[in-house]
Amino acid sequence: MRDFSYFRASSLDAARQAAALPGTMLLAGGTTLIDLAKCGVAEPDTLVDITHLKGLDRIDVNERGATIGALAKMGHIADHADIKSRFPAISEALWQAASAQIRNMATIGGNLMQRTRCPYFRGPANFSACNKREPGSGCSAIGGVTRGHAVLGTSEACIAMYPGDLATALVAFDATVHLGERKLLVDDFFLLPGSTPDREHAIEPGEMITSIEIPSSAAAHRSTYLKIRDRQSYEFAAASAAVGIEFEADGRTIRDLRVALGGVATKPWRARAVEEALKGKVLEPETVRAASRLAVEGAVDHGANHYKIELAPRVVARAILKLGETA
């Protein structure tokens, strides 16, 4: 790991000002940044530690929704009683992520900045070509080991999979990310790789995530996060789905549906086609399974990751049907 200067931000403004400086990065839980610094991917000159800033770790839940400070820890949010009861998919996405230790370190703001696990991205000493690391250098992953790579949202420049769980649930429920003055839908915060895979987030120099806001909805209240993976735990998703549902008064007709996919795309992937296809329909297994296939419309595989195209719609269908059962 290259050496760097270390400072503690004395205030939010100081942190923002520091973040505007070239070579300076904000340090929160460190679970991504320190890891990537050891891999030689992150090479900051200066780290500005924001974990001691006061008041940024609050979790407030009321009728309108949840507001979670950027420094709230994943583990605390997962175990928060009101999050569990009003936003089950958020809690489930969190407790199924990483390990208990990492969840005690990682902040929700830092979690949104989590980088891909693509081994070509993570191995600069071994693979010089990576458009995400070095724009224009090429993509080593294409033609390589791709079992864990994305099938949705890819480009010729990058097929790296977004590995997170929480953001998948956030985009399903129209959460917004607050960057001080500015706020964005989480869905818009994450960028498709296109021809600029180095630019992953719609965040500008000098901006800092201050909080996440999740609006209340009936669908968020009746929601789940289903994660399928090779190991039973401590493992990234092979495919996952955050799903929320609201029924009409008859308890069978779908009024509102939210579906987002994880483990299969270059960013947290809202599957609006599935939502639209099922809204107004009566919840029937066959209808749900057929509609769920729309989740992977346009998917492109790279051989070893083909199974994700088969798997993801099944995960979506199961999650929807499971929520239906609890009526």
Partner: peptide
């Protein structure tokens, strides 16, 4: 990514 079983 080289998987050995976890407790779960």
């Amino acid at each position: 990514e080289y998987h050995v079983p976890v407790n779960a």
